[in-house]
Each structure stands twice: as structure tokens, then as C-alpha cells.
């Protein structure tokens, strides 16, 4: 199923053989079979230790009173669902939930629409199109904290280039406090995240567009489907499997975004950009309430897994079609 998205790089795609591999040995524990198992053991152990264990540990931690004291005394009393009660009862919970939703939906919508427009644009082969398209990847490859720092300077209320430009063009009369006003901070963070996500969307959607046979457009043109009509009736329906993969993956990766928000606003001003993952980080690593932080994490995992299931189904449909 991963084949849908992973390219078989440079190796020529030869058909897999139809004859079974040399399974001449019937006995299970031949040296050969043990060696085969050893190929996957290190990766298996790593995945168990660095993905399996953390998930289990977060579940147990969320049921314990796990604080700084625990590190000294080794005691973490079981408290049942008290941490979850703390989370849900917290004044910050519903704002964080709403912010997570707004941040995710806003980011995905912006990235997708601009990404699709650019992918469609680059589909026309013109001089330098390949070069320009690959240069477009740069924002995606930069460390997120570098992007955050740069945007923080650009969005600076008093000396940032954005306010300066908008002001000198006469679009705004007074500088907009992008990152310091609770009413616009979330919008600013979403805008930055859109900028970061566009290259990914362009790349995947461009790949999807390349797969639509040109003949469909030629046939459509005969029936009068050109321009927007062709886009609605030929491009979008044929792109649907790729679109669902892009959107669901976008959600899964946006929900857990932490670097960008910490770098831009640290969850402020006045908690205006608190999301579930920022809450989880702050409870665990600022307040040292690991139990509460783990409870936030688990809520995040459940939401992610929900979308993971949607992703796998969308992906499977993509393979089937």
C-alpha cells in the first residue's frame, strides 16, 4: 500500500518473480531462516522501543500522578482518570481544541488550494518549469525553527517588513500586531504554516496530475470541456484518490505541529495559539505534570489514529482504482 506514494527510485521496475524464493528447506530453524529474521530484528526492536513503548508509556503515565516528585522518589501513584478530568475541566481545554481544529482546517485549506493551483500551473511545460518547481521545495526542506524565526522577524509589529510594506502601500493605516494580538495571532500562525505546507502539496498533486492521461482532455475538448469545465469534470474526478491522500496526511501532520507555534508565539499571546500538542508540551515540560501532559498526548493520538484509518482506506481505494 505504501507503493502508492513511494517512488521506486532509479531501479527499473521489473515484474516480481512468480516462482517462490528458494524455500527448499522445510525446517523452520535453518541458518538461512534465522539470518532472514535477523535482517528485520534491529528495525523491529527499534520500532518497539521508540514507538511502541512511548505509546504504552503515555497510556500508563496518563493514569498516574507523574510529576517532578516522581523523579526523586520514584513514586507515581495511580489516580485513575483524574488527569483526564483535569484536562477536560481545564479552562484551556476547549480553546485548545478549537484552536487545533482552526489551525488544522485553515492550514490544510490554504495549502491545498494554493498547492493545487500551482501544481496545475506547473503542469504546462514551459522553459525552466522543472527548475522553478524544484526550487519551490526550499521552504519545506528548511528546519521549521528557521522558518519560524524568519517569519517572526517579517511579522514583527514595529519593524517587520510585512507591516512596513502594507503601510507604505496604504493598505493598512496602523501596524497589525500579527503575533502579539490574541485576535490575529492564530491567523498569522496559520499563514506561516500554509507557506511551509505548499511545496508538499504541489509535489504530490503535481504527481497526481501527471497521471491523468492527456487523451482524456483531448476527448473532453471535443465535447466542449475546456478551461474550468475540464478542470471540474476531468481533472478533479481523476485526481480524487490523490486528493484524499494529501488531505488526510495533511491533517495527520498538521495536528501534531509544535515547532512552528513554539517558535512563533509559544502558545501566546493570552493563550490564543494554544493547541493540543502545545498543551501537552507545556504540561509535561514546563509544568512538569507528566501525567496531565500524557493525557493531552493520548487525546492527540486518538484523533491522529482516527485520521490514520481514514488515510489507509483512502490509500487502499487509490490502489484499487
Amino acid at each position: 500500500m505504501s507503493v502508492t506514494t513511494v517512488p521506486p527510485t532509479e531501479v527499473p521496475m521489473s515484474r516480481r518473480r512468480d516462482t517462490p524464493p528458494p524455500a527448499r528447506h522445510r525446517r523452520r530453524f535453518t541458518l538461512e531462516n534465522v539470518t532472514r529474521i535477523l535482517f528485520v530484528v534491529p528495525a523491529g526492536l527499534f520500532l518497539l522501543a521508540f514507538f511502541g513503548y512511548p505509546v504504552v508509556k503515555n497510556v500508563t503515565m496518563s493514569l498516574q500522578e507523574y510529576t517532578t516528585r516522581t523523579f526523586f522518589t520514584g513514586e507515581a501513584p495511580w489516580v485513575g482518570l483524574a488527569n483526564y478530568a483535569t484536562v477536560v475541566g481545564s479552562q484551556l481545554f476547549s480553546p485548545a481544541l478549537i484552536n487545533t481544529a482552526l489551525f488544522t482546517i485553515g492550514s490544510i485549506a490554504g495549502q491545498f488550494v494554493i498547492g493545487l493551483a500551482l501544481a496545475e500551473f506547473f503542469r504546462r511545460k514551459f522553459p525552466l518549469s522543472g527548475f522553478l518547481r524544484s526550487m519551490l521545495l526550499l521552504p519545506w526542506l528548511l528546519p521549521l525553527i528557521v522558518s519560524s524565526a524568519t517569519w517572526r522577524m517579517i511579522l514583527d509589529r514595529d519593524s517587520g517588513i510585512l507591516n512596513e510594506t502594507l503601510g507604505s502601500l496604504g493598505i493598512i493605516s496602523s501596524p497589525i500586531p500579527w503575533l502579539t494580538s490574541p485576535s490575529v495571532a492564530l491567523i498569522a500562525v496559520v499563514l506561516v504554516n500554509i507557506w511551509i505546507g505548499i511545496p508538499f502539496n504541489v509535489t504530490i498533486l503535481y504527481g497526481g496530475l501527471q497521471d491523468i492521461p492527456e487523451e482524456l482532455y483531448e476527448a473532453g475538448a471535443l465535447d466542449g470541456a475546456t478551461g474550468w469545465k475540464a478542470f471540474w469534470h476531468i481533472t478533479l474526478p481523476n485526481l480524487r484518490p490523490v486528493v484524499s491522500v494529501v488531505l488526510v496526511l495533511g491533517v495527520v501532520y498538521t495536528i501534531k505541529v509544535l515547532d512552528i507555534i513554539l517558535g512563533l508565539t509559544n502558545g501566546g499571546p493570552a493563550n490564543a495559539t494554544q493547541t493540543l500538542s502545545v498543551r501537552s508540551y507545556q504540561e509535561s515540560f514546563v509544568n512538569f505534570e507528566f501525567g496531565v501532559g500524557a493525557a493531552y498526548s493520548n487525546i492527540l493520538i486518538v484523533i491522529s489514529l482516527l485520521f490514520a484509518v481514514i488515510y489507509l482506506r483512502a490509500n487502499r481505494r487509490a490502489v484499487d482504482e
Binding site: 528485520v40 520500532l47 505509546v55 508509556k57 516522581t70 501537552s280 509535561s284 492527540l300 490514520a308
Partner: peptide, 22 residues
């Protein structure tokens, strides 16, 4: 195994950080 690998990529980093810190 492939399913597990796909899902492991979706686990939020903060979950791993929480557990690894302890």
C-alpha cells in the same frame, strides 16, 4: 509490519518525547 511502520510515522513527536524523557 508495513501497516505498523505507516502508523508509527503518524505518532506525534510529543508522545515519544514524553516517554523518552522519563
Amino acid at each position: 509490519a508495513l501497516l505498523a511502520i505507516l502508523i508509527s510515522q503518524m505518532i506525534p513527536g510529543i508522545v515519544i518525547a514524553n516517554a523518552l524523557y522519563t
